Amino acid sequence: MTAHDLSTSGQLPEDQLPITVREGLDFGLDGDIPRHWFGGDPFKTRFFDAMSTLFPEGERFFIACVRDYKDQISDPAHKQVLLDFARQEAQHSKVHNAFNHRLSKQGIKVDKILANQRRNLFDIARKTMSKGHTLAITAASEHITALMSHTFVENRHHFEDADPRVRAMYVWHAVEEVEHKGVAFDVMQQVAHVGYWLRVWALLMVSIQFPMFVFQILNHMLKVDGFNRWQRWGIWLKGLWWLYKPGGLMGPLLRPYLAWYKPGFHPWDAGAPGEFQTWMRVMQQSGDPIAASDALQPRA
């Protein structure tokens, strides 16, 4: 079926990846991963650690918001796409919960973070907003995640210093986010008939709230790591420069981010990065997500 139209069936567009559910992958997360696994840099490490704490409840929210419309879809192939989307997201929650267990042992208040996230998404958003609003938030969040996935994999030099096990977890997550990047958007457009301005509002809201939550959690993690206020100031200045400097981690996200605001936008307009095919080839040959991730790294 096409990603662009839930009302028709056919072959996948040439640039679209099939949604594949990969279960039982071993990332070695119970091994001797350093506390600051990203080249010893506390900001880089905790930036990704903070995102990991938000994923389990966020993925559960996305599944619920898409499932709100499953009874309005009758075609078996389209129902299967929704099922595969949900199964991928459930696997992401499972793996990040395992990773977050490591963080709990370090003194990070993961349970409190998850409870706050659960309250914001399920006790507030799901109970006070319409299904169309929460689906728009889901699609906007998926857009942010997918464009980060595109850019992080394509600009792989940024991750040379990361522990290969954690890097492999994020590369796997990135591949699957790209595979299903059009699902929530298609349901939003084709089934829920969400209008353009609600779509715009949703991304603006997510663009403010997501980094705000990540940075709040990151600061908590730096405190737990024992850095005093002045040390944290230095870590933040260096870290924000890494994120937002010209050629930094976030710069390449701007153009694909803004594409959302074009009236005729679709997530698959950007296709899929060629590097993802490298990951899939090595993954199929080896069955090892770490080897597949390492295959994307720059060669000496």
Rank of each mutant, 00 (worst) to 15 (best):
L17V: 06
D186M: 06
A202G: 07
G248A: 13
A259I: 02
Q216T: 12
S141A: 14
A139L: 02
F48Y: 13
M169T: 13
Y196M: 11
P256K: 03
N100P: 07
H193N: 09
D30S: 08
F99Q: 03
F276T: 02
Q297A: 15
R156D: 10
G271S: 11
G132L: 04
S293H: 05
V110L: 10
F152H: 08
P246Q: 04
N97V: 11
H173F: 01
T151N: 14
I137H: 00
V191I: 15
V66F: 01
L218E: 02
K238W: 10
M188G: 00
E142H: 05
S93D: 03
L121H: 06
V66P: 00
D111A: 15
S74N: 12
G28Y: 09
P13R: 13
M212P: 00
H157I: 14
L103W: 00
D269W: 14
V166R: 00
L249E: 06
W201I: 05
L12I: 08
L29V: 10
Q88D: 09
E59R: 03
G132E: 13
H180L: 13
A168G: 07
E177S: 08
R60D: 07
V95F: 07
H36C: 13
K105A: 14
D5W: 05
H157C: 07
Q285N: 11
A295L: 13
V171E: 04
H143A: 03
A300G: 10
R299F: 01
